Amino acid sequence: MDLRNDALEILKETSRTFYIPIVRLPRCLQEGVASAYLCMRAIDEVEDHPTLDVESKAKILRKISLTLQAGVDGFVADAFADSFYGYEDILPEVTLRIREWSILAPETIAPRIWDATAAMSERMAYWAERNWRIDNEADLDRYTFGVAGAVGLMLSDLWSWFDGTKTNRTHAIGFGRGLQAVNIVRNHNEDFSRGVNFMPSGWDASAIQAYARRNLILADAYTQSLPKGPALDFCQIPLALAYGTLDAIALGKEKLSRSDVAALLEQVSSSSES
């Protein structure tokens, strides 16, 4: 199996939200977006690891960041070995194979992905050392920018690189922030059970849901400004699922069911064809 097909298989195993929009992209863009997603999923699995202590998480994340910053025309086979030394048996496959994901993207855009992943990995290390303490809304904005708003900016760079599509960068940040805020809403109980609370002091469920919806308004503006084409096709799907998740939680569900997801995807497909 070649690297691209292997990457798509790993992607399918790790994200039902992003596999579908990525697999529909034109091949060149698909490789860039899949590379970015898997590199960031690799470090996300370190940040969220259920048994690693925060000091180990910060150490691994900083070593990954420094390795990515040293990239020139790719990475030698054992470039990331030092990052994972002693942790090879507990880190997931998607993390241990970050070198492969980093070289999946076309060489004309790969360094942008290395840069974005390195910066995010460093920010994740900072938040791990703080034990993800969110004191106020400014902290929440910093966190959601660091791990998701910056992804919106990178996606804008990918669209521009592929076909010259122009985007509003402020709205791009809102797109990433909004999706991340929905994740916080959806995963709050699970996060809390492992001792992490991403909600600012004094906030309740309604406050974090309102925060998510404020940012999704920017995500709407971002998506609605996109011309017909692969960027629009990609962005519509996670945005529809984000709104659907908030609506499901408002009705007392924990998350979207598979049938809910299928119905939303059908709705998105129908609207994009009309």
Rank of each mutant, 00 (worst) to 15 (best):
I208K: 05
L232Q: 15
D163I: 00
V182M: 06
L153N: 02
A210G: 10
S156T: 11
L218E: 07
L158H: 07
D220E: 07
L158D: 06
S160K: 12
N189E: 15
K166P: 04
G202R: 04
S201G: 03
V185F: 00
S156M: 07
A221K: 04
D163M: 01
R213L: 11
A205T: 11
A205D: 15
F192L: 15
D157R: 14
R213Y: 09
P227C: 11
T223V: 15
G152F: 04
Q180R: 09
W159V: 09
L155I: 08
G202K: 04
V196H: 12
D204M: 10
E190D: 15
Y211W: 14
E190Q: 15
D220C: 08
I173F: 03
V182K: 02
N215T: 02
I173W: 01
N189W: 11
L239A: 07
T170V: 14
M199H: 07
D163R: 10
V151N: 02
S201K: 10
I184M: 08
N187L: 08
R186S: 02
L216P: 01
F162K: 12
R194K: 15
A181C: 13
F192R: 15
S206R: 11
D204E: 13
Y211K: 06
R194E: 05
S193C: 09
H171Y: 09
L158W: 07
V196K: 15
A205Q: 13
N168K: 03
I208T: 13
W161N: 11
R186I: 02
I237T: 14
P230L: 01
A221I: 04
A172N: 01
F162R: 13
F198H: 09
P230G: 05
Y211M: 06
V196Y: 10
G178C: 10
W203V: 01
H171Q: 09
F162L: 08
Y211S: 06
F198R: 08
K166C: 10
I173H: 00
L179H: 00
Q236C: 13
Q209Y: 04
L239E: 05
S193V: 05
R177S: 12
G229E: 05
G178F: 04
I237M: 15
Y211N: 09
G174N: 03
W161V: 12
A219I: 09
G164P: 07
D191N: 10
L239M: 09
R194S: 14
A148T: 03
G174S: 07
